[in-house]
Nucleic acid binder design. Structure first.
Lengths: 237, 237
DNA sequence: CTTTGACTGTGACCTGGTTCACGTTTTCCA
DNA sequence: TGGAAAACGTGAACCAGGTCACAGTCAAAG
């Protein structure tokens, strides 16, 4: 296919809709139709895309960059629930009913999103039922992930929890290299701590000891090299 | 409507399908059609309805009774993820693809279920798109609940977590009474502990102290009287 | 390239929850 | 209905992870 067909000025010449798994069942012409419904928006690092408690009537699809979905707890802590990156979406809860968001969403870096109005999306679902099934599939995956997280937080040791996050990130953000898998961390140490319900210090200490054991190697603060994936996997069984 | 229309021998003369929110959008005739697709099954307390890792190709709807969905962790602990009761369903993950269950399901008491084959259900969804939307809605509610649970387990104190469960159970299993809300607990102390990632002893101790503070009153092991719902709600803010 | 603020690592101490142990109570079902 | 088995409550000791404090390091912006 000619990639110029997918051109869209607001998206740096990527047909955002076409790269999102939600719309993989559509052909080019249908995609062009979807494109007309989409509004684009850009956010700088640290900007909020969605406030906790905000009621929106649209679906937001991440086209470039990364965001974190999190809640602020009464005692001033932060619980990170999701990292959304290219192709992920949020706001699916307002597809069915107008509901206040139970988390805030903040850009972790320069982020571009595609926004589609609730009504338009509902019509799309009616026209192309496969899209609805895709949404359902993603929701089920998200349930899977949360179920795992709950098991981790409820019953696992600290090192198992950290191994678990590292493997999750390796899956999502890792690149193969001769020495092992290099992970571009989406979160700081503190962010990781807030993702798995620990403190920055504990994460720091455990990762240091994992490095001493030869399991991982920390490269600056933003990268980690997984030297022994198998051992990590074993430790969370 | 004449209730005899809803009669079904296997269901003790309740039209199981009609009582499930999934099918509320259907009329009587459509319900009768759904009924033909349904197989019934009964389980005694302690019986397993689903094994961890099992691959099924059907959707299970609880018609009577209660079940717990849980995972056994490596260190011999149990993490309870859901309590399903009348009207709840599970197995939705294999509506989309054949996937191994990541939890086991066990009857907490005598339980009757309605089972509908994956293919049949998919056809129903195609025929009545509202059913698909209902499934999506339930999945979103389930996400909400898990997101709350994760915040609880990640950042909250023990008493806040217990208050939170009690309020959840009050919502789902509570009955108003002159003194307060009486909760028929679906779980033992140990079960509650496994639901919120604590030990039996800790739950026991905290509930005793909550009783001393006049917040709750324990009636035997299976009932709890909420004397001061407002105070509990305040404690988890 | 340098500066500045944010992030990270680590030691010492503290605390809340787990573990272990055991006596009591409740539940269930034969 | 009685008796076994399961569930519960509670004390004491322990310890993993949190808290606090501070020094070292990194990285983004000018």
């Amino acid at each position: 296919m000619d990639s110029s067909l997918y051109t869209c000025n607001s998206c740096q010449h990527k047909l955002c809709a076409g790269r999102v798994s939600l719309f993989t069942s559509l052909d080019t012409e249908q995609l062009m139709q979807v494109m007309k419904l989409i509004v684009h928006k850009e956010y700088k690092k640290g900007e909020l895309l969605l406030y906790e408690g905000e009621v929106r009537n649209d679906l937001v699809i991440v086209n470039k960059g990364q965001v974190k979905a999190f809640r602020n707890t009464a005692d001033g802590k932060e619980q990170i629930l999701y990292i959304f990156s290219e192709g992920d979406f949020f706001g699916e809860k307002n597809l069915l009913r107008d509901q206040a968001s139970n988390y805030a969403v903040e850009a972790l870096e320069e982020t571009h999103v595609c926004i589609i109005r609730k009504d338009d999306f509902q019509n799309l679902v009616k026209q192309y039922p496969d899209i609805g099934l895709k949404v359902m599939e993603v929701l089920c995956q998200r349930l899977d992930r949360l179920e795992n997280t709950i098991e981790n937080m409820g019953t696992r040791t600290v090192s198992a929890r950290i191994s678990s996050v590292l493997l999750e990130f390796a899956e999502k953000f890792g690149k193969e290299s001769p020495q092992g898998i290099i992970i571009d961390l989406p979160l700081s140490r503190e962010g990781i701590a807030n993702y798995i319900g620990l403190t920055r210090e504990t994460v720091s200490r455990k990762m240091s000891s994992m490095q001493d054991e030869g399991l991982i190697e920390m490269i600056g603060n933003k990268k980690i090299l997984l030297l022994n994936k198998a051992a990590l996997e074993k430790s969370i069984e």
